[in-house]
């Protein structure tokens, strides 16, 4: 049973169509990259899946269970975490409060204190700043906080929306290393990226989105080798050529 199975999903804003009938599957433990240019509909897809916006039609199955039209907080309980575009840390709360809110839904079950310690160990920079207002963090630290906060919910599947956006090349490397680590620990990940090369570099499979529809899908290697992909996204020079 796939971790996430989306069929024929349509969603948008008012009369603007964002995604127009998308089918997508993420198997258990898989890292899938969702690629596409500006305005292709990648964020809209994640929003519709995670309950931030209401899908117009279609179906979302999480671990085989129909969760279409569920609210975001219910989906968190069902094991989905979404780190949205722009990180959206809560600026007037401290770093620790941001992290603890990540565990809000399961604050009575499990051991949030231990998880907090785990996250702070993984992201050492955050430990020093745990009593600082999150709004004062640097971009890289904010991205760490956003991901760390999502991990506090102990998700089974993690949706990441352009985690490398706006970071220095050094930090971009760190973020992708982190994503690989998480994947190797068995976490199922759906990664949205504009950076096709980096995105596919760590993914098992990829989907290519254009104006709200899937235009191509395949394994990471297949996509990286595809002439069309190379032409449009990888600077037009095929590696074999």
């Amino acid at each position: 049973m796939p971790a996430l199975e989306v069929s024929d999903l349509r969603a948008g804003y008012g009369r603007i169509t964002g995604i127009d009938g998308i089918n997508l599957t993420v198997a258990q433990g898989e890292l899938v990259a969702l690629l596409g240019a500006n305005g292709a509909g990648k964020s809209t897809f994640l929003r519709a899946v995670s309950g931030m916006i209401r899908p117009w039609s279609g179906q979302v199955l999480l671990n085989g269970k129909d969760v279409t039209d569920r609210r975001s907080d219910q989906l968190v309980r069902a094991g989905m975490a979404h780190v949205p575009e722009g990180r959206r840390i809560l600026p007037s709360l401290t770093v620790e409060e941001n992290l603890r809110l990540g565990a809000f839904a399961r604050r009575r079950s499990g051991d949030p204190d231990a998880d907090l310690d785990g996250v702070l160990t993984r992201f050492g920079a955050l430990r020093e700043r745990s009593n600082q207002k999150a709004g004062t963090l640097s971009g890289g630290e904010q991205q760490m906080l956003a991901i760390g906060r999502a991990l506090m919910a102990r998700p089974k599947i993690l949706l990441l929306d352009e985690p490398s956006l706006g970071l220095s090349p050094l930090l971009v490397g760190e973020v992708f290393a982190l994503i690989r680590d998480l994947a190797s620990e068995g976490l199922t990940i759906l990664l949205v990226e504009q950076n096709v090369k980096q995105g596919l570099g760590c993914a098992d499979r990829g989907y290519l989105l254009s104006t709200g529809s899937v235009v191509m899908t395949g394994s990471a290697q297949e996509l990286l080798a595809d002439p069309a992909v190379i032409d449009s996204y990888l600077g037009g020079r095929s590696p074999e050529a």
Partner: peptide, 17 residues
């Protein structure tokens, strides 16, 4: 306080907004 900072994000954190 989280909801007053950003209600949508708070929902994504599992808070029943």
């Amino acid at each position: 306080r989280g909801v007053s900072d950003d209600p949508d994000m708070s929902g994504l954190l599992g808070i029943p907004v």
